[in-house]
């Protein structure tokens, strides 16, 4: 199928818009997920979203409500992110350990709830997602999220960067690193809730972590880091969707593999650059 012909289909157009909204949003968040060592945190939130969906189904079954599962995941992910932040300040355990037990505990609870509900088939959709299941309502959610992330970064990028590099110095400049951490964690949680449908729990954290990881390898200044991450975040979803549609392969994994390829190229350039300077 010719690439242009793909755009005749509504679901392809929605998928593309969805990718173009979520790709750069995740990439921008990913810059600080990487710098703050929160890759495991975003992965844990993505997997814990299973429990949010399962709890939503149970609440709907008991009450007869018909609420969008994204709302349940959003509430659950935000509570979990706040809970992990709160615990990390009040226990001697490391942030990694807290994330690990929250991650495994909530996934275990989610699987039990899904099993009790008898919705085993739902697990595959939650784990792998489907970008083609996006509709206009999802696009609206994603646009609101993208706008929120953009506003946050335009207003808080400077304090967030300083708080990430040197929290002590940030405090002396009137910045509240803990508050910024909570706000940032909530944005990651919201992104997980909104992006779950597109890539699923397994692949979502790749969309957050990988563009920024590739950009970090390729950049020596912060401006380049942001620009390269955004560029990869924007470029990977359309390339992945096109590859998936033309080669008849699953879309989520195709997008992730585009990011893996970009990361490999950046690493290669990083390895070759010193060698070239030696020969010139």
């Amino acid at each position: 199928m010719h690439f242009i012909e793909l755009f005749r289909y509504d679901f392809i157009r929605y998928a593309l818009v969805s990718g173009l909204l979520l790709g750069p949003t995740c990439a921008l968040l990913g810059v600080f997920v990487n710098l703050r060592g929160m890759a495991f945190f975003s992965d844990a939130l993505a997997h814990s979203a299973l429990t949010g969906v399962a709890l939503g189904f149970m609440i709907d079954a008991w009450t007869g409500w018909k609420i969008d599962p994204t709302i349940y995941v959003l509430i659950f992910s935000c509570l979990l992110a706040l809970g992990m932040g709160w615990l990390s300040q009040r226990t001697p355990l490391s942030r990694d350990t807290i994330t690990a037990f929250t991650f495994t505990g909530s996934v275990a609870l989610g699987v039990i709830l899904i099993s009790l509900l008898g919705k085993h088939r739902m697990l595959e959709g939650l784990l792998f997602g489907s970008i083609y299941a996006n509709g206009p309502a999802d696009i609206v959610h994603q646009a609101i999220l993208a706008a929120a992330v953009l506003v946050f970064f335009l207003t808080q990028l400077r304090p967030l960067t300083l708080a990430t590099l040197d929290p002590e110095l940030a405090r002396s400049r009137g910045i509240r690193p803990a508050l910024l951490h909570y706000a940032f964690s909530l944005l990651v949680a919201a992104t997980v809730a909104v992006g779950l449908k597109m890539l699923g729990a397994l692949l979502l954290s790749a969309l957050i972590v990988m563009p920024a990881a590739a950009a970090r390898i390729a950049s020596s200044s912060f401006r380049n880091l942001i620009l390269v991450a955004l560029l990869l975040g924007i470029a990977a979803p359309p390339v992945g969707i096109a590859a998936s549609a033309t080669l008849n392969l699953p879309t989520g994994p195709c997008i992730v593999l585009v990011h893996v390829a970009a990361l490999a190229v950046c690493q290669l350039i990083h390895l070759i650059r010193p060698l070239r300077s030696l020969t010139t």
């Binding site: 200044s221 401006r223 942001i226």
Partner: peptide, 9 residues
């Protein structure tokens, strides 16, 4: 201490 948006550089 500035309100000018910053995106690196």
């Amino acid at each position: 201490h500035s309100r000018i948006p910053w995106i690196g550089g």
